[in-house]
């Protein structure tokens, strides 16, 4: 069995709560951060991680989440800028080995992917998939995945 990992997730929206629940269910130690306490209602009852109410773009909140001990930080708040800041601070100030950030703006995604942050841009990913499906031969093979 692989070693138990310590993961900090910023943002408890659909993406954050979903990934936090999954990691927690598979045995990882998870801390999830959100500005709004009510957001934690989106977590499943079996979620066994910690919840921290606070702004992930504040150093004190990241410290409280013990980001310096984390193996991963996943920045999935609704704000690109908060995600980019939390990810960079986790990397530079707290030395987290692997950081991932969701970034909606493709321009920012391109710029920050060069800075040691794994960026995921739903906008360009979706555009890419749409484009691929539309340029594929209509053989019926790819349609099942839609």
């Amino acid at each position: 069995m692989r070693r138990n990992r310590y993961v900090v997730v910023a943002g408890c929206g659909r993406l954050g709560s979903g990934i936090a629940a999954r990691l927690s269910a598979s045995g990882d130690s998870v801390v999830i951060i959100d500005r709004e306490e009510s957001a934690f209602a989106g977590l499943p009852p079996e979620f066994s991680g910690f919840r921290i109410e606070g702004d992930a773009s504040r150093l004190s909140v990241l410290k409280a989440a013990k980001v310096d001990e984390a193996d991963f930080l996943i920045a999935a708040t609704g704000s690109d800028n908060v995600n980019l800041m939390a990810a960079q601070v986790a990397k530079r100030t707290f030395g987290v080995a692997r950081v991932l950030a969701r970034v909606y703006d493709p321009t920012k995604e391109k710029m920050y992917s060069g800075l040691g942050i794994v960026t995921v841009c739903p906008t360009s990913t979706a555009a890419e998939m749409f484009f691929r499906v539309m340029t594929e031969e209509p053989s019926g093979r790819g349609e099942a995945s839609l």
């Binding site: 773009s57 504040r58 800028n81 908060v82 980019l84 800041m85 939390a86 920012k108």
Partner: peptide, 12 residues
């Protein structure tokens, strides 16, 4: 008033 906005604006 938002630190993340200020950081990203300067980096851009």
């Amino acid at each position: 008033g938002n630190d993340a906005d200020n950081l990203v604006a300067c980096q851009l």
